[in-house]
Design a protein around this nucleic acid. Structure first.
Lengths: 255, 255
DNA sequence: AAAACCGATTTGTCATGATAAATACAAGCG
DNA sequence: CGCTTGTATTTATCATGACAAATCGGTTTT
């Protein structure tokens, strides 16, 4: 009676049971080297293995689901499975962190200016023709100058997809994620305080030429030139955002 | 009785109820501009407001807890509260994403070499004497050369804390997080395949002089010099890690 | 042979109640 | 008077069990 749940003497049993179970399952996945798609024990089995109630086990699974580490399916052949954390989910979860913090457009561009040229230089000469074609296909979405502010916004999102896609092509997962994350913020959480009724034709043309030149440099394996072009492109983008008085919204990124 | 909860006809009720509730609470936080520490409705009230059972509501809260968006406390005055997502939690959640992906030491240093010198340059002349003193205090942990491999490892972790702390001092939250995240990976998930019985005395001295010189440059507001030093420091660190054949482990980052 | 149906299986939801933890506040003690 | 110590109360936490929804495989019907 004195000891309800001794377990470990020096243990911080502070964290509640669902957290404890979630950690145990995480460890289990690491130990056995489970891969995405692999089966996890079913609800009933976990209840027995941990000697806890259904509710507790289910709450533990929800904790893991929120992190994207497990997925569950109903029906025969259903159950819990190891889930690969998607880029989208990781982006949303990291976005939560910045929700209460102030991230400015300037903060983002400081990083983009440092990272994107580096990526471009590294990618030069290492892209397949299919990948280059995909980039060119994205550019079709803004092949014509925007007619109004709404279309300009749409084109801007498309051009961000250009950068997000480019970031996927590299072999540096860390760099790719960081760049993609910033593109996502700019796509989802940015609002322009000053909208021009007539979009800037010069800047559209200049930005587009940057990207065509960039693709050419990437195709010919000219890393130095790719870096140079991307640098100019980023600086121009920053100036444009500044002119439009773009701001980062306080919202959560949807998955 | 016939209609338990029609809600929206064209609604994607695919996602289960706890997810739905979690999203609703997120929206609620955004709409009302709630800040960390602010009260959320208690369990009982949520049960009534959403017309759902206790278990469903609790699972929803677990989803939010896993993201670090809410905290719950028992007792009088307890309940659910908006929680600030801590850097530690965001780091752990993002770490999950990279669990199944290959991140190499080289990937990390490519980024560190690009970002840390930039941070150093920006920080020059903008640090308080207290902040500079804190950095100097951290350096005390490796004021003497390591006697064995174990102590060298400990010193390495301490020197990473130097960089993590430095990243907090900037006003760019994005940059600060990225740098801190990489420091965390190097601290928690790195193992050295080749350990020298006698630690390299020259490198220890060189690294230490880098940091003292860096602090001097920061104090005197010499941004160009700070960048230069940090660049050398990072390149040296990369070479050292390479010589030790450091590798990133497949583990989850503990909170 | 295609479509509709059925039944087994597994998670998802609901309802209720007992238990444990944390706090506020008052009473007791030095 | 200040400090500790109970104790009541509020709240989340844990447990149990029944029922609903989804899904898959095989079977029957058309």
């Amino acid at each position: 009676m004195a000891d309800p749940l001794p377990q470990d003497p020096a243990n911080r049993t502070r964290r509640s049971r669902p957290f404890h179970v979630a950690d145990a399952i995480k460890d289990w996945v690491v130990e056995r080297g489970l891969q995405p798609g692999d089966r996890l024990p079913g609800e009933a089995e976990l209840i027995e293995r941990f000697g806890m109630s259904k509710g507790t086990i289910r709450e533990a699974m929800r904790l893991l689901q929120a992190q994207g580490l497990v997925e569950t399916k109903t029906g025969p052949g259903g159950g819990s499975f190891v889930g690969e954390v998607t880029r989208e989910r990781a982006t949303a979860l990291l976005g939560n962190y910045f929700y209460f913090r102030d991230v400015t457009i300037d903060d983002i561009y400081q990083l983009r200016i440092a990272l994107e040229p580096m990526l471009a230089a590294r990618l030069a000469g290492h892209l397949s023709e299919a990948q280059l074609a995909e980039l060119e296909a994205i550019m079709e979405d803004y092949a014509r100058p925007a007619a109004d502010a709404e279309e300009e916004r749409r084109q801007h999102v498309a051009s961000l997809r250009f950068h997000a896609r480019l970031s996927d092509f590299g072999d540096n997962a860390l760099l790719g994620f960081f760049i993609g994350f910033m593109a996502q913020i700019l796509t989802d959480l940015t609002v322009y305080k000053r909208l021009y009724t007539s979009p800037n034709h010069d800047l559209w043309e200049k930005g587009r030429r940057h990207q065509t030149d960039l693709i050419a440099a990437l195709r010919h394996g000219d890393g130095a030139r790719a870096r140079e072009i991307m640098q100019s492109h980023m600086e121009m983008a920053r100036d444009l955002m500044e002119a439009q008085q773009a701001e980062v919204l306080k919202r959560f990124i949807a998955e």
